[in-house]
C-alpha cells in the first residue's frame, strides 16, 4: 500500500516541555499500531494527526484528505441512550433524521449492541460503553479510524469483542491507526508497528519483523520489559 500520510519533522512542545521532537514518518499500511513506553508521545501523535492538537513545528502532508473518526481510551458518552449517542455523531454531518437513525442502528447492530439501543449509555458496562463509542465512530464510515488505547481498561472478554469490531471496521475498508500497551493486541491487529520513545520516532517495521527482531536497541529493551 502506498503512503497515505507523511509526517515531516513534527514537533509538539507546549511551554517548557518537549513531547514530540522532529518526528518524520510515512504511514502506508492499512493497520498501524504505535508502540512505545508511557510518556513516549503516542497519544499526542494521534491527536496531532486527528487535528485535536496543532503542531509547534513541522507539518502533515496527506496524500488526499481522509474522513476520520477517533475513539478514546475512556469512552465519553452523552447522557442519553446508546442509540442516541450514535445518532448524535451522525446528526452533526447528516441532517436527514431517518437516515441517521438507520445508519446508527446498523452500526450498533454490527457492534453487537442493538439489544441495548434504548439503554442509558452511561449505565452500560465499560466494555459496552467502548463498543458504543466504536459504533459511533463506525457509523460515520470513516476512511481513517484512530484509536487511543481502546482496551486499556477492559477485561479480556470485552477486549476480544472490541478487537473483533476493530477488525471488522478495517475489513470494511477503513485505515486503522491505534496505540496500545497490549503487545498481543498489537500482534493480532497490526500490519505495521511504529515505535516511538521519548518523543522521538525510533522505527517503523512490519509486525512480524518487529516482534521477531526489532531494529533498535530501545525497541528490544521495550519488548523485554513489557509483558507479552
Amino acid at each position: 500500500m502506498s503512503t497515505w500520510l507523511q509526517l515531516e519533522r513534527l514537533r509538539f512542545a507546549p511551554g517548557e516541555r518537549r513531547i514530540l521532537d522532529d518526528v518524520s514518518l510515512a504511514l502506508a499500511a492499512g493497520r498501524t499500531v504505535i508502540l512505545g513506553p508511557n510518556g513516549a508521545g503516542k497519544s499526542t501523535l494521534l491527536r496531532l494527526i486527528h487535528g485535536l492538537l496543532r503542531p509547534h513545528g513541522g507539518w502533515l502532508s496527506w496524500r488526499r484528505p481522509l474522513s476520520q473518526a477517533m475513539v478514546f481510551q475512556k469512552p465519553v458518552l452523552l447522557r442519553t441512550t446508546a442509540l442516541g449517542n450514535v445518532i448524535y455523531g451522525l446528526k452533526l454531518k447528516q441532517p436527514d433524521a431517518a437516515k441517521c437513525r438507520r445508519r446508527a442502528e446498523a452500526a450498533l447492530d454490527r457492534a453487537g449492541l442493538l439489544h441495548l439501543a434504548a439503554h442509558p449509555a452511561r449505565l452500560l458496562s465499560g466494555g459496552e460503553q467502548q463498543r458504543v463509542a466504536l459504533a459511533r465512530a463506525w457509523a460515520l464510515e470513516p476512511e481513517l479510524l484512530i484509536l487511543d488505547e481502546p482496551t486499556a481498561s477492559l477485561d479480556p472478554a470485552s477486549t476480544r469483542e472490541v478487537e473483533r469490531i476493530i477488525k471488522d471496521i478495517a475489513d470494511s475498508g477503513a485505515r486503522i491507526l491505534m496505540t496500545t500497551h497490549n503487545l498481543g493486541q498489537a500482534r493480532r491487529l497490526a500490519e505495521e508497528i511504529v515505535f516511538i520513545d521519548d518523543g522521538q520516532m525510533i522505527e517503523r517495521t512490519a509486525v512480524a519483523d518487529f516482534f521477531k527482531a526489532p531494529q533498535s536497541a530501545a525497541a528490544k529493551h521495550f519488548l523485554k520489559e513489557e509483558i507479552p
Binding site: R47, A69, M70, F72, G89
Partner: peptide, 10 residues
C-alpha cells in the same frame, strides 16, 4: 471531559 470528543465529531 468532552471537548476532544466534540471536536472529533466536528
Amino acid at each position: 471531559e468532552m471537548h476532544e470528543l466534540l471536536h472529533s465529531l466536528g
